[in-house]
Design a protein around this nucleic acid. Structure first.
Lengths: 175, 175
DNA sequence: CGGAGACCGTTGATTCGTCAACTACAATTG
DNA sequence: CAATTGTAGTTGACGAATCAACGGTCTCCG
């Protein structure tokens, strides 16, 4: 009897796992469709612009971007290629270390981010947050924060870092 | 003031959303790596085998598979191509409707599923379920079940369908 | 100094999934 | 019955991300 408990997924465990997988697939797909339709950039593009906008001097080494976005260094190279071609970011050599090359947010990139931010955040609210009460969102944050890959407490508005966005994209931001 | 609430993601909302995205990326990646390393099939492959094993006569039309896996019909065609080549499933024409072609689980496919099932479920437990108490898993199931794409209450062990697995893969199954 | 090893970013080849177009068949409607 | 409309599945062309391998650079230690 104890054996089956280990080798079968059933009841709430199965529901939780399936909902986790399926909701993610649906939400990400719709989110991306919205962003592409309205602003011509993908969610990944948006993510990169956002991370850059929050970074010191609005630039980051490629590997930092790779880590934040959970992409390969190779993947980031190609993603950045596209954004450079679109004029949203530039590559800047690092004077201290010739190996690293910074991705630098351009003014156009910053504008694009602000432009896309509002509707993107609206989409996230509509597809994700709106289904929960504030209490439930805190529960979710606490629960999901324990999973591998999640970095609990790294939120931008956490009170430990002074509570202010260094150079956030104004009033439309953050995902 | 009310405006910023709508256009900024912060605090628990931001943490919940980021954890949701990042944990999913990490978990799925590790899960897939495990499955490929140990059994030479991907998570998608596994999913298809599992759905077939639970289906009547262990076969399903392509479009049913597409819907279950949240893939395109086109994507399923290619995925099934691979599984057919590996001898894990076969294509069978439908006598009633010449348009549909069934994906039919072979004995080898069934064996492969049983073989992979145990370790896969173990991985899911380790990466996902083990981080929560039973109560928390129920909370999660209830919360995530509300999201778009999730099909709440469709669990295999739901009491509405008689409570028995039609032809489940024995004692190792289900994700 | 000089070599060993680690690290950063890019590239080529490959895999995986999508979209759009197409074929074949079924169902509906006049 | 014929024509239209809709559905199932496959295919070609493409985009996105990966892995493996490479070239250039830094660091550490003999």
């Amino acid at each position: 009897m104890a054996a089956t408990v280990d080798t079968i997924l059933e009841g709430a465990a199965l529901e939780a796992w399936r909902s986790y997988l399926q909701s993610h697939a649906s939400i990400v797909r719709m989110l991306d469709a919205d962003l592409v339709a309205e602003h011509g950039i993908t969610t990944r593009d948006y993510e990169v612009l956002l991370y850059l906008s929050q970074a010191d001097e609005r630039h980051l080494p490629m590997s930092a971007l790779a880590e934040s976005t959970m992409l390969t260094r190779s993947g980031i190279t190609r993603l950045v290629d596209g954004l450079v071609e679109a004029g949203l970011i530039e590559r800047v050599a690092c004077p201290k270390d010739a190996r690293v090359s910074y991705a630098q947010l351009t003014d156009r990139g910053y504008s694009k981010l602000r432009e896309a931010g509002c509707s993107h955040v609206r989409s996230i609210r509509r597809l994700f947050l709106e289904h929960f009460t504030p209490d439930e969102i805190e529960q979710l944050a606490s629960l999901l924060g324990r999973l591998p890959g999640a970095q609990p407490g790294r939120g931008c508005t956490a009170s430990t870092d002074g509570g202010r966005q260094p150079a956030g994209p104004g009033d439309c931001a953050a995902a």
